[in-house]
């Protein structure tokens, strides 16, 4: 139990005035320090899960559903303790920028926690520098790109030192370059701060970075495993309407032509290498 940071046990949640629950009897656990991708198409309930983790939404029946974050069971009186442990980077870079400038925004979470100002100044400067935005500390959000705003959102989370960082479609509104930079940054700060990362996404290239993939469809967890295993289930991916990463698609098409590529090949470079070796053997 100790190495599991998040635990869902038979969690059911319905939005008001809807007939079927958005999340049905969901049970899973996430290991401390891991990177988990939660995938599924729009409306599969994956974003609802992120809001359940930090108590922005509460399960229908707290008696039957149990959510535990870092040993704390979610209940009305523990919700603020849990929010201390979980930071979420949301989808829209603009709609989560609260402060008037970069520094002000990073300080927002600290202000809420009543951190004394002298400490706050140090923490903010450090967090802004950590995400490579030191040159923009005084900048106003309207002068920043989407990717830069997401960096600031990450800095705001690092400043309050949570245990878990959730990326809720955080890269879906960014251009490919901005997306790559954010993912690189997340990978770096995850190691430096010993974070557990949960990325909620329908972009399987992003999911490929994870240690573990959870597949959701219609509020139910339909599969889980390491990315390589999950992406190999091409029919499943197509059934729930997700685009398989290029390497896996190519491997599948090649096997249709009778060319087998080893299971261990997961990146474009490895695929090129493997194809070249194949060429040598012919």
């Amino acid at each position: 139990m100790s190495d599991k940071i998040i635990n869902f046990d038979h969690v059911t949640f319905s939005y008001p005035d809807t007939e079927s629950p958005a999340v049905k009897d969901l049970s899973f656990s996430i290991e401390k320090g891991s990177w988990t991708a939660l995938i599924g198409h729009n409306g599969s309930g994956k974003s609802t899960v992120s809001k359940l983790i930090n108590g922005l939404l509460a399960p229908d029946d707290l008696e039957k559903s149990t959510i535990t974050v870092d040993g704390v069971k979610l209940a009305a009186d523990t919700v603020w303790d849990i929010r201390e442990k979980v930071g979420i980077v949301f989808q829209n870079p603009d709609n989560q920028f609260v402060g008037a400038t970069v520094s002000d925004d990073v300080a927002f979470g600290l202000e809420n926690r009543a951190v004394p100002r002298e400490e706050m100044v140090k923490i903010v400067a450090q967090a802004v520098a950590d995400v490579g935005m030191a040159d923009y500390a005084g900048a106003e959000p309207s002068s920043l790109s989407g990717g830069q705003k997401q960096r600031v959102a990450i800095a705001g989370i690092l400043a309050v030192k949570p245990k878990v960082m959730i990326l809720d479609e955080s890269t879906s509104m960014l251009d490919p370059e901005g997306k790559q930079q954010i993912l690189d940054l997340v990978r770096r700060v995850k190691e430096e701060n010993d974070l557990t990362v949960i990325s909620i996404t329908h972009d399987l290239d992003e999911a490929a970075l994870a240690d573990q993939v959870l597949v959701m469809d219609d509020g139910v967890l339909i599969d889980q495993g390491i990315p390589r295993e999950i992406f190999a289930k091409v029919d499943l991916m197509e059934k729930i309407g997700l685009d398989i990463p290029f390497v896996y698609r190519l491997k599948q098409l090649l096997s249709g032509k009778g060319i087998q590529i080893p299971e261990t090949v997961t990146s474009e470079e490895e695929l090129v290498k493997s194809l070249c070796q194949l060429n040598l053997k012919m």
Binding site: E84, I88, F90, N95, V98, G109, N112
Partner: peptide, 13 residues
């Protein structure tokens, strides 16, 4: 709505 969600998840009480 988005902003209020973000503020709440960042501990605004």
């Amino acid at each position: 709505l988005d902003l209020s969600t973000a503020m709440e998840s960042r501990g605004y009480k």
